[in-house]
Simulated scan of single mutants.
Amino acid sequence: MNITIVAGARPNFMKIAPIIEAIQNKKEEGFNLNYRLVHTGQHYDKNLSGTFFEELNIPLPDSNLDVKSGTQAEQTAAIMIGFEKELKQNPCDLVMVVGDVTSTMACTIVAKKAHVKVAHVEAGIRSGDMRMPEEINRIVTDSLTDYFFTTSNYANDNLVRLGVSKSNIFFVGNVMIDTLLKNEKRLQKPELWEQLYLSSKKYLVMTLHRPSNVDEEKRLKTLITQIVTLGEAFPIIFPVHPRTQKLLSNLNLNFKNLHYVNPLGYLEFNYLVKHAFAVITDSGGITEETTVMNVPCMTLRDNTERPETCDIGTNILVGNDPEKIEKAFKILFSGTWKQGEIPELWDGHAAKRIVHHLASMSS
């Protein structure tokens, strides 16, 4: 079986790393599994994509579509045009897409129109929020997918409700956690640790990039001001996404305990997360990592496609509601934050299960 693996944005690289390793190991056992890695170039900043190949020992892509930035429609179109040429020049038996970024949806559409089967890793997750581009990507991708690799029973149930045959749903666990567990001992203290005199459990980490939080200046200013004020006893480390940087430059938000830093590589960022007192984020993937590392997490969203991080893990949804945020900080500082547990099959072996199923399909 010849597999084309698609990656385009920062979360994708964490997910493909263990899959590629598992394919290589299976091939050494004598199975007929070959892969070709295509980077769409959706994330092209070195800190958002380039460092991952080095840090996670991912082989360099066989092809880079180099689409770069643009509107949702421009990026989708550029990826589809580039990937159509890629598939014509390099036919395969299966296209594997991961996650819920624009590349995932665009390459799925191209593959199905070329009559190539699609496997979706992290299939079936849903937030129910149609304002999120990722939710549209998930719905379109799963409406076309042939093989669904899922992270939770919530995702399984979502797919069954949509009419997906149970025989095409494979509950394998979370490949993001495969990468975290494999690299946990390799996490690297960033230079800013010494520069800012940080110490374990004595600082907060914040990330913001969702349009609902960062696209309107007044809302962003109010949100950051409240968080910085409530967390005034702690340094707050804020790796700034390029999307957010554009707005922050106009807001002049300068606080003694707020430290803007450039996006960090995987090993450095997760070192910060692991040793943080708490994380404040609007990212879905980070809530999975905080759950496994047992770090309190406030999510600045009203919904999540990863409900297990709330029901089982360390995550609490606060949206951008001032009252909910204040209440969460009171719980945090009182020392009564809930103790999380690790969801089923988040054990570091999801990629092996995926490749086991692929090997069965190819035999």
Rank of each mutant, 00 (worst) to 15 (best):
A233D: 14
Y260L: 12
V214S: 07
L60N: 12
E341I: 03
N262A: 14
Y197K: 13
E28S: 15
H356L: 13
G99F: 05
M206I: 12
T151E: 13
Y35G: 03
Q89F: 06
I227S: 01
K246I: 06
M96Q: 02
N254E: 12
T102V: 08
S63H: 08
T225Q: 10
N168W: 09
I20H: 04
C297K: 02
V175H: 00
Q245N: 10
G128S: 11
E326G: 11
T40N: 12
G335F: 07
N12W: 04
K352N: 14
P343A: 11
E134D: 14
Q42D: 01
T104C: 12
V240D: 01
F238G: 00
Q42W: 00
D215A: 07
F329D: 03
G265D: 01
V164L: 02
I236R: 02
S63Q: 10
V292G: 07
A278L: 10
S103H: 05
W193C: 06
D347E: 14
L267C: 05
I224T: 00
N183I: 06
N315S: 13
N158H: 15
A73R: 10
E232V: 13
I79Y: 01
T207W: 02
K330H: 14
E122N: 04
G265E: 00
K117E: 13
S69D: 14
I109Y: 09
E341H: 08
L181I: 15
F277Y: 15
M130W: 08
V98C: 07
T145I: 10
F53K: 03
D62V: 13
F255R: 01
L248R: 03
V116S: 02
T104V: 07
P61C: 02
K218Q: 15
Q339N: 15
P235K: 00
M206H: 03
E21D: 15
M361I: 04
I20F: 09
D178A: 05
F277E: 11
C107A: 06
N270G: 03
P235E: 00
S363N: 14
K330N: 15
L208H: 05
F13R: 04
V6C: 06
K27T: 13
A22T: 01
S127I: 10
G340L: 00
L144S: 00
H43R: 06
N47K: 15
R126D: 07
L159I: 14
T151V: 14
V279C: 02
F83P: 02
P133Y: 04
H356I: 08
S249D: 10
T71M: 04
P190F: 06
A9F: 08
L317Q: 07
I224K: 00
P322C: 10
I325C: 05
I331F: 05
A114D: 05
R126L: 07
K113W: 14
P18T: 06
L345V: 11
M298E: 05
E54C: 08
E74Q: 12
N168G: 09
